[in-house]
Simulated assay, not measured.
Amino acid sequence: MSRIENQFTVQFWGVRGSIPCPGPHTVRYGGNTPCVAMQVGGKRLVFDCGTGVHVLGQSLLSQMPVEGHIFFTHSHWDHMQGFPFFTPAFIKGNNFNIYGAIAPDGSTIEQRLNDQMLHPNFPVPLQIMQANLNFNNIQPGQPIHIDDITIETAHLNHPGEAVGYRVNWRGGAAVYITDTEHFPDKLDENVLWLSRNADVLIYDSTYTDDEYYSSKSPKIGWGHSTWQEAVKIAQAANVKTLVIFHHDPAHKDDFLDNVGKQAADKFPGAIMAREGLILQVPVLDSVSESLPITKS
């Protein structure tokens, strides 16, 4: 078995929420919107197609032909706006299985990806993509199986609905939870269930508590959570590594440095998501020994 087929890695290609924000004040953490790729054994799993997926796509051009599984949490712009610029999807011979829940209006993920590429919003239609695109409608609460990988799903608390994912493989677990808003008086049971004993929890921490409860411009009802709530979930769910994710576009690098320090003080396993970050999830190897978690 090759080395890559015995590994479970998580790599961050886009970590911002709402809108891309490139510039001198976002260099260290990055300005691309959400895209997280996991290499699970020999399988490539991609979560959301914000502008970060364009960078991921460019990195894959030297590896043609490419096969992958793309999972959408929902179809707000910042989570799908990079898909029309995902170069491997335009290349014949590549193969992508695409997953998403049916929206409250009844539209499928295929319909929503198609609609964003229609005139007058985009110059060419989805059908110009030459890769083999297989669309799958998922039901939150029902698991998805890809060979020996099990992906658990659950509804999240977000306007227009969203789906959280938990990837399980060889005793390791990585959880992707964005976009979601915490409840004022209790921890979200779906979030707790997905996060249980996870090695890595990637959690929507768009705001600080001060911003969320601000008397001048509160963010209650906007569909996002805070890093303080992320810490509560990580503690309650016995998470090993908490990744603060979906940074507000107004949060500059220095601001995020400070958030990272505060989060780590409250929860020693907390780290900040940044473009290029790679986490190695511990799994059981061929002799059932646990590998240590590492980051780079």
Results as ranks from 00 to 15, higher is better:
M1S: 15
S2W: 12
R3I: 09
I4K: 12
I4W: 12
N6M: 10
Q11C: 05
G17S: 08
S18D: 15
P22T: 08
T26F: 05
G30R: 03
N32T: 07
P34N: 11
V40T: 06
G42H: 05
F47A: 06
S59Q: 04
S62C: 10
M64K: 12
M64S: 14
P65G: 15
E67L: 09
F71Y: 09
H74G: 11
H79G: 15
F85Y: 13
F85I: 00
F90N: 10
I91Y: 09
N97T: 13
I98D: 08
Y99D: 08
D105K: 02
N114T: 14
D115I: 04
D115A: 15
D115F: 06
M117V: 11
F135Y: 15
P140T: 10
G141K: 03
H145N: 13
I146P: 00
L156M: 09
P159D: 11
E161I: 05
G164M: 07
P184R: 10
K186G: 03
D188L: 02
L194V: 04
S195A: 15
D199T: 08
Y203T: 02
D204F: 05
D204S: 00
D210H: 12
Y213V: 00
S215C: 09
I220N: 00
G221K: 00
G223R: 02
T226C: 01
T226N: 07
V231S: 02
I233Q: 01
V239F: 01
H246N: 11
P249A: 13
A250L: 13
D254H: 08
Q262K: 14
Q262T: 02
F267C: 01
E275S: 04
I278H: 07
I278K: 14
S288M: 14
P292S: 04
T294Y: 11
K295P: 01
S296K: 12
